[in-house]
Simulated scan of single mutants.
Amino acid sequence: MIGATATGFVTGFALILAIGAQNAFVLRQGLLRTHVFSLCLLCATSDALLITAGVAGFGAVAEHYPSLPLIMTGGGAAFLLAYGLLRFRAAWRGDYAMTLEGRSPSLAATLATGAAFTWLNPHVYLDTLALIGAVSLQYEEAALRTAYGAGAVTASFVFFFSLGYGARLLAPFLKSERAWRWLDIGIGVVMWALAARLVADLF
């Protein structure tokens, strides 16, 4: 039981460790120190739902809807391009008065953006429904499979809350408009790079 839980934790943590659009958004929000708990809870809970579905064997759903991956990929790429453009525009304008005061969009807007990063990302379905679900097949007993899924879900909660609240450790280095401008440029580059990869997947 412990071994299955540990395997699930390591597998889940490894899949979400890479810097992605969702992680970059959580990091930025963590630096602002606003709506951090709600955003982390949203991201982790969303992952938990997808992981549970994957372990339960619903990874084959996409086979019944062959157009779904194409729709999700196109929508995800468009969203990443748009958000990346927003970050580049913010860096160009350089108006960070509200940012330096720790102010950010409303809770509803923050959660809507976080949900979009999660559910419009086709790779999240590959990671949770397909990969995590596939690894769970090695456990024939329901109890072991449940323990594996619980480990993966726990990894998601640990990661997002560590990222969101750990971001404040970088706050001392982001007390100037110049620093925030470079951060937004970096996030914009990440967003557009991920969008390019999604577009490449279409061909």
Rank of each mutant, 00 (worst) to 15 (best):
M72A: 12
T73E: 01
T73F: 04
T73D: 03
G74N: 03
G74L: 08
G76H: 03
A77V: 02
A77N: 01
F79L: 08
L80H: 02
A82P: 02
Y83P: 00
Y83T: 02
L86I: 00
L86N: 07
L86G: 01
R87A: 14
F88L: 13
F88E: 02
R89L: 13
R89M: 07
A91Y: 06
W92M: 10
R93L: 10
G94T: 04
G94H: 07
D95Y: 04
M98F: 07
T99Y: 05
E101D: 14
S104M: 04
L107Q: 13
T110Q: 00
T110F: 00
L111F: 00
A112E: 00
A112C: 04
A112H: 01
T113R: 00
A115P: 01
A115K: 02
A115L: 07
A115I: 01
F117D: 00
W119F: 14
W119M: 07
P122F: 09
P122R: 07
H123G: 02
D127H: 10
T128H: 14
A130K: 11
A130C: 11
A130D: 12
A134Q: 14
V135R: 15
V135N: 15
S136Y: 11
Q138K: 10
E140Y: 06
E141D: 13
A142R: 10
A142Y: 05
A143R: 08
L144A: 13
R145K: 15
T146R: 11
T146N: 09
G149M: 06
A150K: 04
G151Q: 04
